[in-house]
């Protein structure tokens, strides 16, 4: 184990401790304003761990969308509703029981899971190599290829279509090209949600004006 590995391990342990601490604090919090801010912090800590786990794209998106937009939306809702939650019932025995049973079942399930970082895990041995190999030679060749066959336009286009998409970031190439329809579906979901939110909140001002006239 090198010095960098040890340092990374220490940072990971600190991050996990902070994640657990934030989550348990949110459970006890009755001030919704503070709970929302802590949720943003939780998202951001999660994004930091994702960065260490070699998923920079997800980390950026989580920090921007999860910690940013979601927090702003929740704060806007707080401004329109109330900031304080009622005290919960004394000791909710049933939820605690359910949570512990579900957690125990999940932990039992992990004993069959591949270990952390195991290169022979099924997730890394199936289609992953195809995606990697399709993009790897293409990116490495295309630079040399571009220099050589500058005038043979048809040939270079053909090879790009055949060997991959020619995007250095494999996550982007899978997201936007191999699974482009998925991303289109995602956009449809956002569009639908946007329409839903607009329809739900549309009549707010009119209704309030009517109430004020009556009152």
């Amino acid at each position: 184990m090198s010095l960098t590995d040890v340092a990374t391990q220490i940072i990971v342990i600190l991050l996990l401790a902070l994640l657990v601490g934030t989550a348990t604090t949110i459970v006890r919090m009755r001030d919704l304003w503070a709970a929302v801010m802590l949720t943003g912090i939780f998202s951001f800590l999660g994004a930091c761990w994702m960065l260490i786990l070699d998923a920079p794209d997800v980390a950026f998106t989580e920090a921007a969308v999860g910690a940013g937009i979601a927090t702003v939306l929740m704060l806007a809702t707080l401004a329109l509703t109330s900031r304080e939650a009622k005290p919960p019932p004394e000791f909710p025995i049933l939820p605690i029981l359910v949570v512990f049973m579900a957690g125990a079942a999940l932990v039992f399930g992990t004993f069959d899971m591949p270990h952390f970082g195991d290169p022979s895990a099924p997730a890394h041995t199936h289609v992953m190599s195809e995606y990697m190999n399709d993009t790897v030679p293409d990116v490495r060749q295309s630079a040399a290829h571009r220099d050589k066959t500058h005038d043979e336009h048809d040939d270079s286009q053909h090879s790009v279509a055949h060997h991959g998409v020619g995007v250095p970031n494999i996550i982007t190439s899978v997201l936007a090209s191999y699974r482009g329809y998925d991303t289109l579906g995602e956009t449809v979901v956002i569009f639908t949600a946007g329409i839903g939110v607009l329809l739900l909140l549309r009549g707010r001002r009119e209704r309030r004006d009517v109430e004020e006239d009556e009152g």
Partner: peptide, 20 residues
């Protein structure tokens, strides 16, 4: 592995849509 990242990128955005 890039594939979990791809799945989760989609899931994050859908998650914010449902939250909204």
């Amino acid at each position: 592995n890039p594939l979990p990242s791809v799945l989760i990128l989609t899931a994050i955005v859908v998650g914010v849509a449902t939250t909204a």
